[in-house]
Simulated assay, not measured.
Amino acid sequence: MFSEELKALRRMGFRQALLQALNFCNVIASGLMMWKGLGLLTNTESPIVVVLSGSMEPAFYRGDLLFLTNPVNEPYQVGDITVYKIPGEDIPIVHRVIESHYKVDTPLVQDILTKGDNNKYDDISLYKRMKWLERQHVVGKVRGFLPYVGYVTIAMNDFPQIKYALLGLMGLFALVQRE
């Protein structure tokens, strides 16, 4: 199977190979533009996230794909499930709002305290030097989910060989595709 694809790639002229490579770059750029457009539409830097731990069970399980929005004129309420990011940390956390306090009598300037449904204690110890989360730390509010779809992402992060093999196969098929 792969030998036939490699032979087809060798038969291809330089101009055809260049055209195929440009088409592949166009597909990648289109995907990135759709991701950024979805981010603008939902007002969040990351409109889709994967649950990486069991801290929110039974609401969400590891591998669930979450869809987020970040409402501009809507305060976060107790019970909302949010995704937040601590400054200096790479991985966002999915937890439920358990307390909310407003600053200066405005509903959009608020402090938030969160906790995982499956955790014994609240998240104050996760906040590092902060006592409360501020709105600027919240990536978004969960609006929907697809169960277990995110396991593909988890598998690719746990086993990078899978990720590189899939990327290589996609690149090879994009180069030899004749359409």
Rank of each mutant, 00 (worst) to 15 (best):
F2E: 12
S3A: 13
E4S: 13
E4M: 07
E5S: 10
L6I: 13
A8R: 09
R10L: 11
M12C: 06
G13E: 01
Q16M: 09
Q20G: 07
N23K: 15
C25M: 14
I28V: 15
S30K: 07
G31D: 06
L32W: 08
L32R: 05
M34S: 07
M34A: 15
W35L: 14
W35Q: 13
K36W: 12
L38F: 12
L41A: 10
N43R: 13
E45R: 08
S46F: 04
I48F: 07
V50Y: 03
V50K: 00
G54Y: 00
G54D: 11
S55N: 14
M56L: 04
M56D: 02
F60S: 01
Y61W: 08
Y61A: 08
R62M: 10
D64C: 05
D64W: 10
D64T: 02
L66W: 09
N70Y: 07
P71K: 00
V72R: 15
E74F: 06
E74Q: 13
Q77D: 06
V78R: 05
G79F: 04
G79L: 00
I81F: 09
I81N: 09
I81P: 04
Y84E: 05
Y84P: 00
Y84V: 02
P87V: 04
G88W: 01
D90Y: 00
I91Y: 09
P92Y: 00
I93V: 14
H95R: 05
R96W: 02
V97M: 01
S100T: 12
S100V: 15
H101S: 05
Y102F: 12
Y102C: 13
K103S: 10
V104N: 12
V104R: 13
D105A: 14
T106Y: 10
P107M: 14
P107A: 08
L108K: 02
I112T: 06
I112C: 02
T114Q: 03
K115M: 04
G116W: 03
D117R: 00
D117K: 11
D117T: 03
N118W: 09
N118D: 10
N119Q: 04
N119M: 00
Y121N: 13
D123Q: 06
S125N: 13
K131N: 13
W132D: 08
L133R: 00
E134Y: 08
Q136S: 15
H137G: 02
V139R: 09
V139D: 00
V139P: 02
G140L: 02
G140P: 03
K141L: 14
V142E: 05
R143V: 14
R143H: 04
G144P: 12
F145H: 06
L146A: 11
P147S: 06
V149G: 04
V149D: 00
G150I: 00
Y151K: 10
V152L: 15
M156T: 13
N157I: 06
D158I: 04
D158P: 01
P160G: 04
I162C: 02
Y164G: 07
A165H: 03
L166Q: 09
L167N: 10
G168E: 03
L169C: 11
G171M: 12
L172C: 01
L172F: 11
F173R: 14
V176K: 07
Q177A: 12
R178K: 14
R178S: 10
R178Q: 12
E179N: 13
E179C: 05
